[in-house]
């Protein structure tokens, strides 16, 4: 052909996925539930990055937020209450080629699944974890969760919950080998999107706590930061969660925080006077267990047969 090199060829047009290609069943969450925003952000992210639905798995436990996989059109695993972490880790162990999102709630992650949460942080396998924290058990109808504030009235504590809440950020930042810890809110779409995007781009386990409204049971809980943005503390840093100038201007309270500063991250995470959002901590060099578990993938059948025969021969008499 004129003007073209001999070996020039047209690459077969790879398909372009649209938003609808990521959308599954119509969500059955309550109107006004923060889960809708997270679902939309993940679907937009997948479209923007053109992730393939068949190469993506959404894993969840049990609870309102754990219905998430059903509303995607990717592969999904809607498993047991509290047990999303081991399943997600198991999938990741031998499938380095997949994108894995894991969605969990405050009951799922911080109560019944606590052991798995702690160890999954330590395993640091490449998984994007979204903790949708609405401070209450919604699906089972208004019971106290580990993150419910002291005095919160629920069906299990009608005279108000007795204990101070567990802070999932402080816990996560206290676990050896944590590699990505961030917090965002469901009601600020750019920050939510950019946080999930940064989490997805991180190689390792990224832990994102999303403060999330429950219009039914904890409507009042996040009213204050919604109405008064000075109650939110935006962490800013060139290596943190990016936000454009207009987005930045909405937050009167900001703090420059280097996400490599673990001590400062713990200090900010423990603050009770404000809701800090942004990236607390990132360590790109944390050990990744999935690099160990994936070793040996791809041995041929002949190699295996020879190795088995050799192993058996060691017992020969």
């Amino acid at each position: 052909m004129v003007g073209l090199k001999q070996d020039w060829e047209i690459a077969p047009q790879s398909r372009t996925c649209e938003l609808k290609d990521y959308q599954g069943a119509a969500p059955r969450w309550c109107p006004g539930c923060g889960d809708h925003a997270v679902l939309g952000a993940v679907q937009r992210l997948m479209r923007d990055k053109q992730l393939l639905p068949e190469k993506t798995v959404c894993v969840s436990g049990i609870g309102c937020s754990s219905r998430f996989p059903h509303y995607m059109s990717t592969y999904g695993f809607h498993g047991l209450h509290g047990r999303a972490f081991p399943v997600a880790c198991g999938i990741r162990a031998r499938r380095p080629d997949l994108d894995i999102f894991m969605v969990t709630g405050d009951g799922d992650c911080c109560a019944i699944g606590t052991a798995h949460w702690i160890h999954a942080i330590r395993y640091n396998m490449n998984i994007t974890v979204l903790l949708l924290d609405n401070n209450v058990y919604g699906l089972t109808k208004n019971q106290t969760s580990p993150t419910s504030r002291t005095g919160e009235k629920t069906n299990t504590h009608p005279r108000g919950s007795v204990l101070p809440p567990l802070n999932p950020l402080c816990v996560t930042l206290g676990i050896a080998n944590a590699s990505f810890v961030a917090q965002t809110v469901d009601w600020n779409p750019p920050h939510l999107y950019n946080t999930i995007k940064a989490a997805h781009e991180h190689k390792g386990l990224s832990f994102v706590r999303v403060l999330q409204r429950c219009p039914h049971f904890t409507k009042h809980v996040f009213q204050a930061p919604l109405q008064d943005l000075s109650q939110v503390l935006l962490m800013t840093h060139e290596e943190g969660i990016s936000l454009d100038a207009a987005g930045m201007r909405r937050f009167p309270k900001q703090i420059a925080h280097n996400p490599h500063d673990l001590d400062e991250a713990r200090h900010i995470a423990a603050r009770e006077d404000v809701y800090p959002i942004g990236l607390f901590y990132r360590d790109e060099n944390a050990a990744r267990y999935d690099l160990a578990t994936a070793q040996g993938i791809g041995k041929t059948q002949d190699e295996k047969l020879a190795a088995i025969d050799q192993a058996l021969s060691r017992f020969a008499v």
Binding site: V59, P86, V87, R92, H116
Partner: peptide, 25 residues
């Protein structure tokens, strides 16, 4: 030697959950 891997899980529940994840994958 056959490309396999032993995962020592944090508990018995996680051990089967991890195995089920592998199998699902």
């Amino acid at each position: 030697q056959v490309g396999g891997f032993v995962h020592q899980a944090e508990d018995e529940i996680a051990a089967i959950g991890f195995a089920i994840g592998c199998s699902y994958g």
